[in-house]
């Protein structure tokens, strides 16, 4: 039995004990405490020093907290806005008006889907041109209303398809970057799972960029890098390491502002704790940013991206 399987067995046992305690009114306090200590130790061993590749696997889990259920748990209210007004509506990139911590804002997020049908429809979170044209439209709604913008990113990348090209997916991504860079109110981006390439950066030209501990943010998938640079898709774990795509690596590089800790074992082990962690961090940054004048806000954002990567030895 692997450690992971052992952990699963222990967790099932603990759940059963809890059920028994509740149903039959048994006092199983001590037994539960012992079991929970064991579980915590095992999780720590398993997850504390994860390899980049292991985090890639965690970030891609279909049960990872993200998408519409995450948004519904995060916000007090969410009203979805749909369609790019030209071609259609993309279920992989969604958004709308939201209330968070009592404040109004506009929210954009990737939706990978929970059921196989949803996952097919949203192409596992790969948004096409109409998704990014819709995102640009919603950014403009937020700009007109002077509302903060919050983006929740979880995508393997923009969808590479014939229709996507015909509808100018490259232009849509470029337009999102430009629109977000000019946004006349605070902007916060949180990478919840995969931050895949252009499809992620389209929603990430923000004042603050946060990542969940096991999220990834990368110029290319490890598999893609492995096959292009190593000519061998099997070295993807090595490529994942070299690309410096983990939250901790990117925080060290100064590319992101904060690593939001996940429940031990990964975000999927505790949905509501993950949502709470994200909510606290987002509200803290929105509060901090709200104290800046518009001029200060835009100047700081502009400087951040104008200099990205150019500081350090040799510059």
């Amino acid at each position: 039995m692997t450690d992971e399987e052992r952990l699963k067995v222990l967790e099932e046992k603990a759940a059963e004990l809890r059920r028994l305690a509740e149903q039959d009114g048994l006092d199983l306090h001590e037994e539960l405490a012992v079991l929970e200590r064991k579980i915590a130790e095992l999780r720590k061993q398993l997850y504390l020093d994860l390899s980049a590749w292991a985090r890639v696997q965690l970030a891609r889990r279909p049960d990872r907290p993200s998408g519409l259920p995450f948004v519904q748990a995060l916000c007090e209210a969410f009203y979805e806005l749909r369609g790019d007004r030209v071609v259609g509506d993309d279920p992989a990139l969604r958004g709308g008006l939201a209330r968070l911590g009592g404040k109004r804002l506009v929210l954009l997020f990737h939706h990978r889907g929970a059921t196989p049908e949803e996952q097919r429809a949203s192409r596992f979170g790969m948004a096409s041109a109409q998704g990014y044209w819709k995102a640009k439209r919603l950014m403009e709604v937020a700009a007109r209303l002077r509302l903060p913008l919050l983006t929740l990113i979880n995508t393997p990348g923009a969808y590479p398809g014939v229709q996507a090209e015909a509808h100018n997916v490259a232009g849509a991504i470029a337009a999102c970057i430009w629109t977000m860079l000019r946004h006349p109110a605070p902007t916060v981006a949180v990478i919840l799972g995969e931050g895949g390439s252009g499809g992620a950066v389209a929603l990430a030209a923000a004042d603050r960029v946060l990542m969940l501990e096991n999220a990834t943010y990368s110029v290319i998938s490890p598999e893609g890098a492995a096959s292009i640079l190593w000519k061998d898709a099997k070295v993807a774990p090595k490529a994942a390491e070299a690309l410096k795509l983990t939250a901790h690596d990117l925080h060290e590089l100064g590319v992101i502002d904060e690593v939001i800790p996940e429940p031990l074992g990964g975000a999927h082990t505790d949905f509501s704790a993950t949502v709470d962690g994200v909510r606290r961090a987002v509200l803290r940054y929105l509060e901090e940013l709200s104290r800046l004048s518009l001029d200060e806000l835009l100047r700081a954002r502009y400087n951040r991206y104008r200099h990205v990567g150019a500081q350090g030895p040799g510059a």
Binding site: A204, Y305, V308
Partner: peptide, 22 residues
């Protein structure tokens, strides 16, 4: 496209050149 060997730093040059465009 973006230079793979520079990772996310290359990806973020997309934002930098748009800042120039602004």
């Amino acid at each position: 496209g973006a230079r793979v060997q520079e990772g996310v730093l290359a990806l973020l040059q997309m934002v930098k050149v748009v800042a120039g465009r602004e």
